[in-house]
Computed example of a mutant assay.
Amino acid sequence: MKKLLTIVLTVSLALSLAALAQAKKLVVGHDTNFMPFEFKDPATGDYVGFDIDMWKLIADRLGLEYQLQPMDFNGLIPALQSGNIDAAIAGMTIKSEREKVVDFAYPYYDAGLMILVRADEGDIKSLEDLEGKVVATKLGTTSEDFVKKNAKAKDISLFPNIDGAYMELATGGADAVLFDSPAVMYYAQTAGKEKARVVGPLYMGQSYGIAFPAGSDLREQVTIEILKLMEDGSYAELYKKWFGSDPK
Rank of each mutant, 00 (worst) to 15 (best):
M1D: 14
M1I: 12
K3S: 14
T6E: 11
L9R: 03
L9F: 13
L13F: 13
A14K: 00
A14L: 14
L15V: 12
L17C: 12
A18D: 06
L20W: 15
A21K: 13
K24M: 04
V27H: 12
G29T: 09
D31T: 11
N33F: 14
M35E: 11
P36V: 08
P36R: 09
F37S: 05
F37T: 03
K40Y: 05
D41S: 07
A43T: 15
T44Y: 09
Y47E: 06
Y47Q: 08
G49M: 10
G49W: 01
F50Q: 01
W55G: 02
K56W: 04
L57T: 08
R61T: 12
L62K: 15
L62T: 09
G63A: 08
G63E: 07
L64V: 05
E65G: 11
Q67N: 12
L68I: 11
D72E: 13
F73V: 06
G75P: 00
L76A: 00
L76D: 02
I77P: 03
P78W: 03
P78L: 10
A79P: 01
L80N: 02
S82L: 12
S82V: 12
D86W: 05
D86M: 06
A88E: 04
I89K: 01
A90T: 04
S96P: 05
S96D: 12
R98K: 15
K100L: 15
V101I: 15
V102M: 10
V102G: 06
D103Y: 05
Y108R: 04
Y109L: 13
D110T: 14
L113C: 04
M114D: 02
M114H: 07
I115K: 10
L116S: 09
A119V: 12
D120Y: 02
G122P: 00
G122C: 00
I124W: 06
I124H: 08
K125E: 13
S126H: 05
E128W: 10
D129S: 03
L130E: 01
G132I: 06
G132N: 08
G132Q: 11
K133F: 06
K133G: 08
V134T: 15
V135F: 08
K138T: 15
G140Y: 06
G140F: 03
D145E: 13
F146A: 04
K152Q: 11
K152F: 15
A153R: 05
K154A: 12
K154Y: 14
D155Y: 07
I156Q: 03
I156V: 14
D163V: 01
D163H: 07
L169E: 09
G173C: 02
D175P: 11
D180P: 04
S181R: 10
P182S: 15
P182R: 06
V184I: 14
Y186Q: 09
Y187N: 04
A188D: 08
Q189T: 07
T190M: 05
A191R: 13
K193S: 03
K195L: 11
A196H: 10
V199A: 06
Y203E: 09
M204D: 15
G205V: 02
Q206Y: 07
S207H: 14
S207F: 00
G209V: 01
F212H: 02
F212P: 01
P213C: 10
A214Y: 02
A214W: 00
S216N: 07
D217V: 07
L218P: 03
E220I: 14
V222A: 06
T223C: 06
I224M: 13
E225R: 11
M230R: 15
D232Y: 02
D232C: 06
G233P: 02
Y235K: 07
Y235F: 14
F243Y: 11
F243E: 04
G244K: 08
